[in-house]
């Protein structure tokens, strides 16, 4: 019994982390049909922004709840600075190209960003460790959990629900959905599609930075944290069906739970399991769990 509870809890925490990264990825793909490899680097930059604002080393850190708004502020700054810049001066040059080409463009951007990170912050790891103890500990049977981990789960739910509500309940959201559905018709109906792209991409950068900023307390922030995160969230997005927020949530939960199960019962298979899940899902649902070949929705 204990075992299954821990699998559930650990899987959920891991899944929440994955979902926080994947939601921005899936949104940008849904609207712009760009599988953004640079999302990982932006995730790392979000973590670095948090580290810079909160303190960056364990001795001189902003303690207390003030750290949380600072982390949010960092994410907003990253989004406002990098989002429009990348969209207007890089991605816009390549619109209309094949999906694979766009993916490679973002791969190039991520290579550049990784070196830029090293130029700005150096290679040495930074820490945002103080906020990790903000929410105390939670005791569960024989196990101790850190309250902050559950805060991350709550944050993932909040971000997911808020984004979904925004898309379904607001005018702007409905415009975005229209663009997702058919950019050409939307343009004919008077939608300023390039502005939708700009906002969506900037929001995607914001989501990446939020994921990085709010997971940074449990990590050592190094230039390469994005590389591993990005390939996992790709798997999540593909399992979910590319461009679907619900799909990304289910994909993240699936990956999180199967990884936790593997670690408990068959630790040798930790790496396999994620790709095995992806292969198995694709075997039975070639378009991913929530993907629809004809019209993509999110």
């Amino acid at each position: 019994m204990d075992v299954f509870l821990t699998i559930l809890v650990d899987g959920t925490i891991y899944g929440a982390w994955l979902f926080l990264i994947a939601i921005g990825l899936t949104l940008v793909f849904g609207v712009m049909k760009i599988l953004n490899v640079a999302h990982g680097a932006l995730y790392a930059i979000g973590a670095y922004a948090a580290a810079t604002l909160v303190g960056g080393n364990v001795i001189e850190e902003v303690a207390g709840f003030w750290a949380l708004p600072l982390m949010l502020l960092g994410s907003i700054l990253v989004a406002v600075i990098l989002g429009p810049f990348l969209e207007k001066f890089v991605l816009r040059l390549f619109y209309g190209r094949d999906e694979v080409v766009l993916l490679l463009v973002t791969f190039g951007v991520s290579l550049i960003l990784e070196d830029v990170i090293r130029m700005i912050w150096g290679v040495f790891s930074q820490y945002v460790a103080a906020p990790y103890s903000l929410f105390g500990n939670v005791e569960m049977g024989p196990l101790y959990y850190v309250g902050y981990d559950f805060f991350v789960v709550a944050l993932a739910v909040l971000v997911g629900v808020a984004t979904s509500l925004f898309l379904s309940r607001t005018i702007m959201g409905k415009i975005v959905l229209a663009v997702i559905h058919d950019a050409e018709i939307s343009r004919a109906m008077g939608v300023n599609v390039s502005r939708v792209y700009l906002y969506t991409f900037t929001f995607g950068v914001f989501l990446a930075a939020v994921a990085g900023a709010f997971t940074s307390p449990m990590l050592a922030v190094t230039p390469s944290i994005g590389v591993n995160a990005i390939i996992l969230s790709f798997a999540v997005v593909v399992i979910g069906g590319m461009g679907s927020i619900g799909g990304a949530a289910v994909g993240a939960a699936l990956v999180g739970l199967s990884r936790a199960t593997a670690i408990n019962f068959w630790p040798e298979a930790e790496l396999f399991v994620i790709y095995a899940v992806m292969a198995a899902v694709l075997l039975f649902r070639p378009q991913g769990l929530f993907g629809e070949p004809a019209q993509r929705r999110i």
Binding site: V3, T6, Y14, M218, L219, V227, E270, L271
Partner: peptide, 16 residues
């Protein structure tokens, strides 16, 4: 995994 960065599940196993 090298570079995994998240060890929650492993820590639970060790504690159990």
């Amino acid at each position: 995994e090298k570079g995994a960065g998240q060890y929650g599940a492993q820590i639970s196993v060790l504690m159990r």
